[in-house]
Design a protein around this nucleic acid. Structure first.
Lengths: 201, 201
DNA sequence: TAACTTTGCTAACGGTGTTAGGTAAAACAC
DNA sequence: GTGTTTTACCTAACACCGTTAGCAAAGTTA
């Protein structure tokens, strides 16, 4: 009785084509321009079919949000593995974050833009690694070597994200080429260097 | 012949009531929920009247954007005047920025949220002071005292904004009380302290 | 009073997310 | 193979949205 299986497969294909089509629309016209009707048109089904696969429009966006967070997490994990020195790890992850943001503007805008608030940056990952674990560990190692024991690691963790997010979101919002690209990357490098220097004491 | 004047006055009153009403809606229901029809309803005029005063909806948002940037600039200018020491000035301005953001969430969200992109953070002020002047001056003074002449002030200027914006926008997007308020303020203070320490060399 | 200008309205256009209700085809039971 | 039930899918609507064309009434001027 492979009928049920075939049906599930077909249903999954429609679901996939919804996501694929939506992604194309977003890439070509931006999030603002994505509409249920446009998707329905493109996949050659009527509008209500979409609601058989997603509760509402936000559920579609959330799906992309998850994808984005997973991709970002894997890129940062990968970056971290390239070195053992905690300071270098932080720099590598900052680099990975930067690259992710500008190679996947659509994802980044959805994830951190007008708070689709997919998650609090942490949750909604496959359960294994969290961003917190990833970034907190090298911070703690640097702080352990620091003679000044007053410094709060949790606080530094937030600073790390804030600096990166701030730099990227300002650059992304700014009218394209307000400042040269290299300068922006230098600002990030400089800020992260300063951050690490302060961690080392 | 005060007729024309009275008419102008009356027209201005309608314009003001549009802005006032719009602001009330935003405060009570958020930017997402602001619509031309709601404004028209509330001021007890028909919809097209609004278009006699504003070219379109975005023009209304832009008006608020200008207000926001002016308010922020004045708060930061005021903060700067409280001290002469450049490091203290930067801290005071960071504080003022922080306070502005959380005492005027609606403004901040409009100004830096989903890029209504009112301006590039600088322009659209009354022509006199720019944010750049305000922040760049104490940075330059600190760098002048620093023996390391390699440091780029323009770069530091961008870092300053990024850190502040990053901290605030992450806290604003986060689901209300992810982290205690005091901790967040501590993160800002810590980040700005670190920033200034690095400026001093 | 007649002509003109301004003011404000109704009603529409084309778009959005979402859902109720019906039909035809496919799958199942006998 | 026939009858019944489930599934897939569509049409059409609801309630919104921003925006604009066109018209009627009121106010202003000569």
């Amino acid at each position: 009785m492979g009928i049920a299986e075939r049906r599930l497969r077909q249903k999954d294909e429609v679901r996939s084509s919804i996501l694929e089509t939506a992604w194309n629309i977003v890439r070509e016209e931006g999030w603002q321009s994505l509409s249920i009707r446009k998707i329905a048109d493109a996949i050659e089904y009527s509008v209500p079919v979409i609601y058989d696969h997603f509760a509402n429009k936000e559920a579609i966006l959330l799906e992309f949000g998850k994808q984005g967070f997973n991709l970002l997490a894997s890129k940062m994990e990968e970056a971290k593995k390239t070195t053992e020195e905690p300071g270098e790890q932080l720099k590598a992850m900052a680099d990975a974050y930067w690259n992710f943001a500008f190679r996947n503007k659509e994802y980044y805008q959805l994830m951190f833009g007008l708070g689709i608030a997919c998650c609090e940056t942490d949750k909604c990952l496959p359960g294994t690694i969290t961003f917190r674990d990833l970034v907190m560990e090298p911070i703690s190692r640097l702080l352990a070597e620091n003679t000044n024991k007053q410094i709060n690691g949790c606080l530094k963790y937030h600073t790390f994200w804030s600096v990166m997010h701030g730099l990227i979101s300002i650059k992304m919002t700014a009218n394209t080429a307000e400042v040269a690209d290299e300068l922006n990357k230098m600002v990030l490098d400089d800020a992260i260097d300063g951050f690490i220097r302060n961690l080392k004491g």
